[in-house]
Nucleic acid binder design. Sequence first.
DNA 1: TTGAAAGCGCTAACAG
DNA 2: CTGTTAGCGCTTTCAA
Lengths: 325, 325
Amino acid sequence: MATINDIAKHAGVSAATVSRVINDSGYVSTETRKIVEKAIADLNYVPNRHAQNLRRGATRNFGILTSSLEEPVLARIEPFMQFANEANYTTTLFNTYNDPQREINALDRLKSKELDGIFLIYRTNEWSAIEPYTKFGPIVTLHNIERVDLNIKSVFIDHYEGYKLILEDLWQNGARSFINILGRSTGVNTKRRIKAYFDFCEEHKIKPHDIHPFLDITSRKGTLKAIELLDEMPTKPDAIITHSDQVASFIVSHFRKHDIEMPEEVAVVGFDNLIISDLMDFTSMDYSIKEQGRNACRLLLNELGAGPYELKPLQFTLSKRGTTK
Amino acid sequence: MATINDIAKHAGVSAATVSRVINDSGYVSTETRKIVEKAIADLNYVPNRHAQNLRRGATRNFGILTSSLEEPVLARIEPFMQFANEANYTTTLFNTYNDPQREINALDRLKSKELDGIFLIYRTNEWSAIEPYTKFGPIVTLHNIERVDLNIKSVFIDHYEGYKLILEDLWQNGARSFINILGRSTGVNTKRRIKAYFDFCEEHKIKPHDIHPFLDITSRKGTLKAIELLDEMPTKPDAIITHSDQVASFIVSHFRKHDIEMPEEVAVVGFDNLIISDLMDFTSMDYSIKEQGRNACRLLLNELGAGPYELKPLQFTLSKRGTTK
DNA sequence: TTGAAAGCGCTAACAG
DNA sequence: CTGTTAGCGCTTTCAA
């Protein structure tokens, strides 16, 4: 492998000059530049990135941390990556499988200079364990963080409004009883959705259902169990509202296989408006999930002084399809 | 940021000893080790990876190259990543968006020592442009490479057999006319599928359809255009066989929205057996796609002398669901 | 406009 | 069992 010194010798200049050509920094005469460029081409030279990184103390590499690689995660990763690439950053993906130690290992790479910043999609450690790492580089998350004292930026959108919109739309189309399939009970989004539901019930003077059995539903198994509960209920709800297209897809799939008619017997609504909701033809709440991924990257770039990139506002739009009236 | 020298000073030993503790190499007395470990904990030290990488000339990082980040790609990336992680490798994702230059840039990172190996899922450059990079590290692909002279390993599975299995199953269940929706005309998989179809036609003495209009169908738009062609045909086929679950999902979705009954009016078969085929309830050909991702990683690891890891054999199994008899 | 030289933080002979 | 030393390949003062 050719090194910078090989190029220097070949071109009859010093390594410093070659470096200047590579990085387009400092003064180099047009002639010298040409000679050096020819040498680089001749020897097929590519600078050793580790040496550059060691010298510079930066890598132009972002870490993406997640606990799984499912569709909703991917929907953010893709636009994030694209935006990062355009700003000349690469992305290294870390799947923690919900293992706190793996997450810490990945965060350590911020410390070891291997990562310039982190896009934390799902976390498994406590914020208090994560926050100290912001000393070594910016961390951006999707979580709606409640503690403002934390030095962690977020590109969240308050799900309260979106959830309310769904409920109101269902109500206007005749639905009077609802079941909410909710995600992680610790998440702020879940809390906001619950609040939206309770507020809605109060406004319309209806009695809210016991949300407890429908909390922490994320897996397919969990979803099917929740559906079983529904079967056991004396009166079926008019509508089921979920927290993700993934969970909605499990439900819609199950209902179709069991010839339960939507929306006649029951309406089903997803959240995220991913491709699957279009393919499976179910109603879903859109909130510019791709823009959210790009915003995460913009935030990171801004923190690193590469910006300023203006964040694009996110907004809710209900995409109505075959599972609602 | 604490460096190895800080630790050395703090512990009253040399940097070499600290290095030995970090890497668990050479001899270190239990006492010294303890002192050093305490110093590391005290100063919250994490070794600078660039320095390590520069020194070692390796990174324990694999590049994953793809031209898009859709479900079938993800289905391989996920198991690949997991396997790599377990072998203590990280993975950096490169999305080329079919831009040859981006692909070359990523390949250059093999040269610049930033990547120890590459999992090339989709390529955009000619093999002749890619092959020279194997000098700098192993490259593994999913493509069924025709040129054996290339130093590129592959974890392909010959689609001929799988395709034949689909056709025979449909035939046995009464289908007599078929339409094949085919992928990239340059791909070996496509050629093998066509061969399977032609052989099948000869065996059963039926006339093959003109495959031309159904070649290079990968996008949703392209798929819908292909469906339009079907509508214009005087007699409808008994079955549509696709090259991927993605394309199949477009078709199934379209037919359901237009109340075309499957399998009564027409049967539809996918390829890959991804979750979507289960959710949307369509028949699909399984060939251990996840194992294929793992095999790719095993191959890479073997090339780097980290093995030997035995490759798991892949096999075809037709997952029959609601869109076929 | 160019070159010499120092050093980023670490590892691996080698010597003791 | 431990320390000394050289150097991985690059960038960046500083001096010329």
